[in-house]
Amino acid sequence: MMSKNKTATLMEVARLAGVCRSAAGKVLNGTGGSIRVGSAARERVTEAARKLKYRPNMAGAVLAGGDSRLIGVILDSQGHYRNLRLLIELEALCTENGYQLLTCFSHDNPRVMSRNYSMLMRYGVTGVICCAHDYPGLISEVEAIFDDGGRVVFMEKPEFEAENYVETKRTNAFRKMISSALASGYRRIGAVHGDSIWSSERKLRNEFRQALSDCGIEPDDRFLYQYSEEAGTAERCGEAMRRLILPQKPDFLFVHDAPSAVFLQNLIREAGLEVTLHGGDDDPVFSGFLPRTGSLDPHYRRIAELLFETASGKRPECRETVETVFRRNSIRRKR
């Protein structure tokens, strides 16, 4: 019997499973070269490792030319629900495929991002998923961080040249949302979104304007309010009331994130107005609104699959677009 203080070795796992050391290493550490391990033997190795409480040596696996089975994720520390949802989906995919996530955060600070990226590389991650790169005025600094040839895939196409990215597209979903709103009796359709200094917000604004045009509505900037990124949520929504909702009286408003929608809904009710809101990031908070508020579906699972497959090396390259989905019957008729 093993001592309580003794750590099980790979050889001990192999003996208990009745396989060679290379086969056990292939299953547990990703080492073992081109050796193939059948499903029955793989199950015996996994069970033996569980019984012996074997802990793979990640550093040893990497030095031996194996796969660390670690995926690094760089997130924006001020990100909204999308970051959390992507992290949930990525964690599930990693668990299903025998990988683990290492996460780190930064915001508007290339020095911190560079330090985080270097840390992930020292851990020998198989690949990195970067969800934090849209920083105006810092594009060249961010680009320089990832010029070492490491396997990196970006969430959304960055402002600089990148080999791998997954971008989202909402024009078709916006078109269906606006068409449904028109069919439900709404005529004064607008949107509230973030500052256009961010490329992601410029893209959202352009997609919304295109969808309006496709639906026969001349885009009117008075109905498209962009709030300052420096302002807090309450201040942003107060400005949206003063500059858009009170003077223009929209009856249907797209608001991408739930925190802003909550504030706006309360202010709209206090003003005695009726404006139907529609969300964009599928935050479950939207379903708790009274009356219930619909939201677009960014297709997080598909986004996460593409990011994971690229970061893990299962997909050699990726420049894919994922279409956001509009849910039918998510807009109630105007009263």
Rank of each mutant, 00 (worst) to 15 (best):
R36Q: 09
L90T: 06
R187E: 14
T9R: 13
E270S: 10
G25T: 01
R292F: 07
L224Q: 04
S213V: 02
T310A: 11
S295C: 11
I71K: 06
D257W: 10
Y81W: 06
P110Y: 00
I71Y: 13
S106A: 09
A258R: 01
T171E: 15
F263L: 08
E207V: 11
E320P: 06
A173G: 09
Y300P: 08
E320I: 05
V153F: 11
D76Y: 08
L28V: 01
G124M: 12
L70H: 12
H299K: 09
Y99Q: 00
D221T: 09
A162M: 11
F223H: 07
L253I: 00
G185Q: 12
D257F: 05
V112P: 01
A24T: 02
R205I: 11
N83R: 06
V152M: 06
G294C: 13
N97H: 15
G72P: 12
S39L: 11
K203D: 14
D214C: 03
T233D: 09
L264K: 02
N5Q: 09
A261W: 11
K176D: 14
F223M: 14
K4P: 00
R55Y: 02
L84H: 03
C215E: 15
T9N: 02
T7E: 14
A23F: 04
A234K: 14
V125I: 12
N29F: 00
R315H: 03
A23R: 14
L102A: 07
C237K: 04
S184W: 00
G150R: 10
A234V: 13
L101A: 06
L120R: 13
L290V: 13
P298S: 02
R269V: 02
Q100M: 03
M11P: 00
D214P: 01
A231M: 15
A304R: 08
Y225N: 01
W198N: 08
F105I: 04
E270W: 02
N172L: 13
G60Q: 04
R15L: 00
D134P: 12
E274G: 05
I268Q: 08
S118I: 06
G32L: 04
I331M: 09
E201R: 01
A132P: 11
I217K: 03
G272D: 04
S77W: 10
R333F: 07
H193C: 10
Y81Q: 01
E317S: 14
R187H: 14
G280Y: 05
V27K: 07
A41S: 15
F105R: 11
F254W: 11
